[in-house]
Design a protein around this nucleic acid. Structure first.
Lengths: 141, 141
DNA sequence: CAGATTGTTGAGAACCAGTATCATCTAACC
DNA sequence: GGTTAGATGATACTGGTTCTCAACAATCTG
């Protein structure tokens, strides 16, 4: 079983795309994250690690990866676009957002997942889905 | 059983807020919608119907209404904030987003709703939730 | 391996949804 | 009707995201 990063790089090649420094850097950075990151965080993370990528390339790469279904776009309503690797099954999760501090954390719930599968099937619609639960996190309570 | 608009206006008054032209126009416009609308759409809708509201007032009113839990903010990941009346039970729904044309349409699914309730309870977390399913809509297929 | 080709990259400008400012207006209270 | 604090709207501003374009480099070819 290949890692997500090698899988992503292979998929890029198969799509007829080249592997420039920016794409490699973004894929490598994302593969080390366990939950979603904003484009700025990704950019800063790469730069502060000694990399040299432009913001534009980060956005372009994320868009490309999203089109290939290699990353999942996550929107929690704070005006930032976040992205995370679209891994198979075991890493699949959804998000809790704290209305007070804005913190985003992942959660999983198997029954919910099954209900989603069935709903999507019934509607003949979705391959990707996103669930956002809002409330007050432990720290803020 | 009161309509959503009169309910919303009452809630505004009870919160010690006045009912200016802008607030009334936004509430009235929203009450006639069956699914979410962006702030721009709301503004344009009111203006093209002969109303005279500033964009700033639309945003301010939406924020106020959201704080009072009278409107639900919906984020489908296209960089626009959408809003819809937060009605009780029967009108509660989630959203399907077409990856091709970007169209947003509502759907309901009772089993999914129950799974959400249980998941939220287990996590001790959420009062509000939002589900977005992505795929290709009938027209684009 | 050098050279050609063409997709990729990065800096900076442009764009645009959303927010802040502030002078004017008006809803609510007397 | 007069007063006053909250509401409104035109406009300037902010910051995330996208566009532009010249320089660059991944891949292919000979």
């Amino acid at each position: 079983m290949a890692t997500w990063s090698s899988e992503a790089l292979t998929a890029l090649r198969e799509a007829g795309l080249r592997q420039g420094g920016a794409r490699r850097a973004v894929v490598e950075y994302l593969s080390r994250q366990d939950c979603c990151r904003s484009a700025q965080e990704i950019h800063d993370g790469i730069v502060s690690a000694g990399g040299a990528v432009g913001v534009a390339s980060v956005y372009r790469t994320l868009e490309t990866l999203a089109e290939l279904r290699l990353v999942q776009r996550v929107d929690v309503g704070d005006g930032l676009a976040r992205f995370e690797p679209a891994r198979e099954d075991e890493h699949h999760h959804h998000h809790l957002v704290c209305d007070d501090c804005g913190r985003v954390e992942p959660f999983t719930d198997e029954p919910l997942e099954q209900a989603l599968e069935r709903a999507a099937g019934r509607l003949g619609y979705a391959m990707q889905h996103e669930v956002v639960l809002r409330g007050t996190c432990g720290d803020c309570r």
